[in-house]
Amino acid sequence: MKSNALRLAVRATTAAMVLGAASQASAIEVGSNGYTADIYGYARFNASYDIDEDIGISTRAGAFSAINTGAAEDNEATGYFGADAVQTRLGVRATSPEGVKVVIEGDFRPGTLRLRHGYGEYKGVLLGQTWSNFNSFVGNTTTLDFDSLAGLAGLQGRIAQARYTTGALSFSAEEPITSFTDGAATTDGKQGLPTLTARFEDSAGGLSYSAAALVQEVSYDTGTADDSMVGYAAFAAAKMALGDMMTLQGTVSYTDGANSYLYRSGENFGAEDAYLLGGDLESIAGYGGSVGVGMDLGGGRSANIGYGLVTVDWDDAEDDGIAVGGKSETNQNMMANYMWTPVKNVMMGVEYAYFKRENVNGDDGDASRILFAGQYNF
């Protein structure tokens, strides 16, 4: 199909969507002469009520960083409502007769258009931005909270990379995400080498499973001082179908010098990988996991409950005199939801969530909240 013809087809389809003719069960598809393209996405409304303190951020997700700890928790106001539609998403997929696949997708978090996916793929070779290869959704419990449970497998985010997939195995070289602290401030590490990952993901009968490993360089160079160290991480995830109506799923992760990949550790998403002591980088370890149950109640109704926890080991840094008392040591949360589909392509749901944060110095704080979501797919 000639490029101008494809553009005309997409324009015509987009016009139909704007006029309300896009109520199909799946993405809007066009194609000719071996080319296929589809437009997909959804409109999403999220509303939250924070019962005892305001921890809502964009998409009305709960943030560990917003939880008051210690004496501050005793003086907090109560009852906060918020709503937004920034989770709304739009994407385009196209495939050529030769099998070249291109995906471009964006959403509006935290309030402006951002790129989620932008990549091409051919015969197992992927170049661009998409989910990190050090990531799996196999063991995830379904939640309405966009940021979900602590301790999920891997990065749970999208990053620029070069990836090769053969069967159940995939390997990647990715843009590095590293940071370190001297106690006074957190600094991004030098991007000297790509992060390397390997993942195996497969299924057998009612069991789906995934495992991955990562190695990265954590370094800095000020021109007058420098140091580097090797960090690594690993995770395993699995989901088991318990009959036709229930699933049990979970994840487990361990990191050492790679806490950026320990999901929802630190202040909210990733703790520092190392601390700086006398010009030398010392690695920081962490671990975490999640467990959950999903239930299909029939008639388009489902219920899910999940729990997640991550802990960062700051003991060495504390023993070495680094000021880390206010750092988050353990983050944990629990989410329970009820979701229903009143008509095809429409989802409504309500979720209760409990968050707790414990700092290195022993201060802690918690928060409870209720989230409502409505989503319209096309």
Rank of each mutant, 00 (worst) to 15 (best):
Y275D: 06
A323F: 03
D280C: 00
L248Y: 11
A258D: 00
G308R: 04
L309H: 05
T341H: 10
L297Q: 02
V291D: 00
A271H: 01
G243Q: 11
M335W: 04
I305A: 15
A271D: 09
L281Q: 00
K327I: 01
G243P: 15
Y354E: 11
G288F: 12
G298A: 04
A285E: 09
L262Y: 11
F355H: 13
G321A: 14
D313G: 06
G266C: 03
M295D: 00
K344R: 14
E318A: 12
N268D: 13
G325K: 15
S328D: 15
N259C: 08
N337A: 01
K327Q: 05
F355D: 04
E267S: 13
I305G: 11
D313A: 06
A274C: 02
S283V: 00
D280A: 15
S328C: 08
D244Y: 11
R357N: 11
S260M: 10
D315V: 05
R357E: 13
E267A: 15
A258I: 11
S253V: 13
K327C: 00
V350W: 04
N259L: 08
Q249F: 03
A274S: 13
L242N: 10
V346D: 05
L242V: 14
G266H: 11
Q249G: 02
A285K: 04
E267W: 08
M246C: 14
R357V: 15
V312D: 02
S328V: 05
N333H: 14
D316T: 13
D296N: 12
F269T: 07
N345P: 00
M245N: 14
W314N: 02
D315M: 02
N337Y: 00
